[in-house]
């Protein structure tokens, strides 16, 4: 345990700065590494190469470019100009609220809620409000359709996600994300503790459902019906220009990073290494250096999870709207309900 005592304001300031890093760093990494480079390589091209070595400074060039773009509010949207302008901020705020709950190390956490995962699922739906506001206030048919589709899709895939998480909660016996990490790393598989007990192994069905739901919540292809560019131009973002559009964009990829972190915490052991490696048994035994190494481990796991999300995104064509809804309601929800009951029976039996 760290023996440093800080005043409340200093602690809060540190946390907020840490939160900024935890939102912007994954967003930047995901956009450069996957959206710029991986997609280019999968399509047999090089991607950005001019700004910096291998185009690594492209992101800064992009931000510089977007900062100079005109901020347009269409005449038809003028009556609703205020909420039109605030919608991207709501989406970004949802990401910040979401990252507040992710644990990065034994003492490196922002908030230590007992209802942690419950809180995360609740605030992740705040972005739906921002998207609906954006779609409706734009006074544009594409935007309205995109916003409604987004709302329909996000609430449909929210359910499998919530139900998949319940399997993890049953196994760990807690909703606290920190304790879920400890439960995985201090656990054992049939008496062998060399790997801990990552819930990826015991909750594999839950993990698959969770990742499919994450893909849909992030509106990444095959679930990108809300912003389907070949029919809705850019969905709810059609009328946005300049920096407000970029805020939507940052929000989307930052949320991809944060959701992947949450997936790593729930299923891959989060910041921890199997405790048996160093002879730890509880969270109080964990050495201080894990506060530095832990975030790096979590970041690595996040990159791996995002890799799979993006791999699917670049490989598959888009679902049709009715297929998309049918898949959520008639396939994922029944399977996740069955998953809960099977997990519960096994938990009570063993």
């Amino acid at each position: 345990m760290v023996g440093v005592e800080l005043a409340y304001w200093a602690e809060s300031l540190l946390r907020v700065l840490g939160g900024l890093v935890a939102v912007l760093l994954p967003a930047g990494t995901v956009v450069y590494l996957f959206l710029f480079k991986m997609m280019s390589f999968m399509q047999s091209r090089l991607g950005p190469m001019e700004a910096g070595p291998y185009g690594s400074l492209q992101l800064f060039a992009e931000v510089g470019k977007w900062l100079q773009k005109e901020d347009i509010v269409p005449t038809n949207a003028q009556p609703e100009a205020r909420i039109f302008k605030i919608a991207p901020l709501v989406v970004l705020a949802s990401t910040f609220l979401l990252v507040a709950v992710v644990p990065f190390g034994p003492d490196a956490w922002f908030t230590d809620f007992d209802g942690g995962i419950f809180y995360a699922l609740a605030v992740s739906s705040v972005s739906v409000l921002g998207i609906l506001i954006a779609g409706w206030s734009s006074a544009n048919k594409y935007s309205l359709l995109g916003g409604l589709r987004a709302a329909g899709q996000l609430i449909a895939y929210e359910l499998p996600m919530v139900l998949a998480v319940i399997g993890v909660v049953i196994q760990a016996g807690t909703m606290n994300l920190q304790k879920i990490v400890v439960a995985q790393n201090a656990g054992e598989i049939f008496g062998w503790d060399g790997l801990g007990n990552p819930f990826l192994l015991t909750q594999f069905v839950g993990f698959l459902i969770f990742m499919i739901a994450v893909q849909a919540e992030l509106t990444q292809t095959p679930f990108d019906m809300p912003i389907a560019e070949s029919e809705l131009v850019s969905g709810y973002m059609t009328e946005y220009s300049g920096f407000r559009f970029l805020i939507f964009f940052i929000g989307e990829f930052a949320t991809a990073g944060v959701f992947s972190m949450i997936a790593s915490v729930l299923f891959l052991g989060g910041w921890g290494v199997p405790f048996a490696w160093f002879g730890w048994t509880a969270i109080d035994d964990v050495d201080n250096w894990m506060n530095v190494v832990g975030p790096l481990i979590l970041f690595t796991k996040m990159i791996i999870v995002v890799f799979f999300v993006m791999w699917v995104r670049f490989s598959y064509p888009r679902f049709r709207e009715d297929q998309l809804q049918r898949f959520a309601w008639k396939v994922l929800i029944p399977i996740s309900l069955a998953n809960i009951m099977v997990t519960a029976v096994l938990k009570v039996a063993f």
Binding site: S12, V16, A93, F96, L97, V99, T111, D112, I247
Partner: peptide
């Protein structure tokens, strides 16, 4: 902890 959440929400609006 919930106060921290408020700070995070404000940080988002401040950054934007």
């Amino acid at each position: 902890s919930y106060l921290t959440v408020v700070w995070f929400g404000l940080a988002a609006f401040l950054l934007a």
